[in-house]
Amino acid sequence: MPENRTRRLTHGAMMVAIFTVLLAVSTYIPLTSILITWVLPLPIAWYSAKYNMSSSVAVTIAGIMLSFIVGGGFLALPVAFMYAVIGLVLGTMLRLKKNKATIFLATSGAILATFAIVYFAFVKILNINIIQQTLDLSMQSFDTSRKMMEASNVPADQLASFEKQLELMEKTATYLVPSLLVFAVLGIAFIILAVNLPLLKRLKLEVPKFKPFRYMQLPRSILWYYFIVLIISLFVRPEEGTYLYVAILNLSSILTMLLALQGLSLIHFFILEKGMPKGVVVIATIIALPFLQFVSLIGLVDLGFNIRGFITGETKK
């Protein structure tokens, strides 16, 4: 027992030290943060996957406190808090041997929860609204585009049309903040898992295997959600700016993006199933990106009619 306790304390101290050093390097050498940020959860995740919850929470708190003291003060505290908690959740899911979907959802939830806490702390304590500042930067870019058009002496009708497009883009950007936040959270969770799970496997931890992207299959219930949102959009037509309008707009964006991922995975599936070179997959993905609306229709058809079954000749009876 004393030996196990000593080993637990030694490993905890090592992981806290590594976490603090990584955070300090990313804080004081900004260019390194592009790479180091994605492996910040690794030390806490490794420890949390090997030891019980109480020890893991203690190491997480110690990592946050030490990072505040020697890793960059208040500048490093939000980052330390977010990535230490993400590491704790990821490691705990691995220790409990949860499946890949649960790990992804738990990691996404940890990212969203910690971001929400940091966001409200910034608003209440420092009076800094991160989301509003991001929107303001977008509006400034729109204003710059507007001024460039005015300076180029374009015809009045073209300028008026351009003004309407910019106004629509400004409103849409404001309305779509919730869905953009969801996309960002899911994207960050995916990258963190893609980077850290292979590293944790190399560190002799048992990690679940994620199927290749071409086998991605959304629940068929997504079809019902999509059609319900579509019917409300066509027949109810909520007034612009209302809560229902914003909710429908965000749900529509999220569902369209999910269906686009389904369609893109089908394209990957078809190319690889037919034995084409992997380079064709890259080219097809690049070509598909500007046509996500069309790709989402492909995903919709795939969910409804099992196109993969037709490709492999194994359709459902």
Rank of each mutant, 00 (worst) to 15 (best):
F19Y: 15
V154Y: 15
L289F: 09
S108Y: 00
I254K: 01
N153Q: 15
K316F: 08
V185G: 00
V123P: 11
T315M: 09
E150R: 09
R5G: 05
F210H: 00
R308F: 01
F120A: 01
L40K: 00
L203S: 09
A13V: 11
A288C: 08
F291T: 06
I287F: 02
S48P: 13
N196D: 08
L90R: 03
F19E: 13
E167L: 11
N4P: 02
N306C: 04
A160R: 04
Q140E: 15
Q133P: 06
Y226M: 11
V123G: 08
V85T: 12
P238W: 05
L168G: 05
R214E: 05
L126D: 05
Y119F: 08
T144E: 09
Y175P: 01
R146S: 12
Y245C: 04
K147Q: 10
F162V: 01
G72T: 15
F310N: 08
L193G: 00
K50C: 13
L180Y: 12
K274F: 02
E167R: 07
R214N: 05
H11R: 09
L176N: 03
L197N: 01
I111R: 05
L264C: 02
Q165Y: 05
A189L: 00
V177R: 06
F213Y: 00
T107H: 00
E150Q: 11
S67L: 13
R237T: 10
D302R: 04
L259A: 05
S48V: 08
L297T: 09
S161I: 02
L303F: 07
L186T: 00
Y225H: 08
T134V: 10
Y245G: 09
F213W: 00
P290D: 09
Y215W: 02
R5M: 07
A116D: 07
L272W: 01
I271T: 06
V21L: 15
L297S: 07
E150Y: 13
Y225I: 11
S48M: 05
V16D: 11
Y225L: 11
L186Y: 00
F74H: 13
N196H: 01
M82I: 11
S67Q: 15
G309C: 11
N153L: 14
E273W: 04
F104Y: 03
M93I: 02
T20H: 12
D143F: 04
L75A: 14
A58W: 10
P2I: 08
S138Y: 01
Q158I: 10
N127M: 01
V246W: 03
L203V: 06
L135D: 06
T6V: 12
K147G: 03
F305E: 09
P43T: 06
P155E: 11
I69G: 13
T315K: 14
I228G: 03
A49D: 11
M257V: 04
E150T: 13
V79L: 13
P43Q: 02
F115R: 07
Y28F: 14
V185T: 14
I44G: 10
